[in-house]
Amino acid sequence: MKRNYVLSYKAENTNEPVIWRLIKDFDLQVNILRAKVSPGQEGSLLVEIDASEAATMDKALCWLEQQGIKCMGVAKRIFWEEKLCVDCGACTGVCFPAALAMDKTDWKLAMDLDRCTACGLCVKACPFGCFRLDFGD
């Protein structure tokens, strides 16, 4: 199972080689998609984690929490205001992970936010201001 998470941490946790531990101790595949770090203070990492089993993923997430690192599924970082949406589709052309696509039968916007990598392109592409992205803070 593949999931995208935003890991947010404070400077005091950074001496732990988090990514290395995730790979080594939990046998996960970790792909860093985006990072925002303010030196000496705090940071956020957007990572794609691939685990062979759901249980391993849960254990890893638990360990991260114990280290004081907040994990949040990216789906929870992108906000979409449904009542503004007219299903035009303008957002779908810029969403490369295909979290946004048009349903080819009813032509409604079909969302699979677990695939979202928080690139933010849809925020500007939507003519109706439907999206808001909250990354890392």
Binding site: V86, D87, C88, G89, A90, C91, T92, G93, V94, F96, M102, D106, W107, K108, P127
Partner: peptide, 12 residues
């Protein structure tokens, strides 16, 4: 990738 700008759902 191709994407529409006008809403086919609403056109229908």
């Amino acid at each position: 990738r191709t994407a529409p700008l006008s809403s086919l759902k609403k056109a229908r």
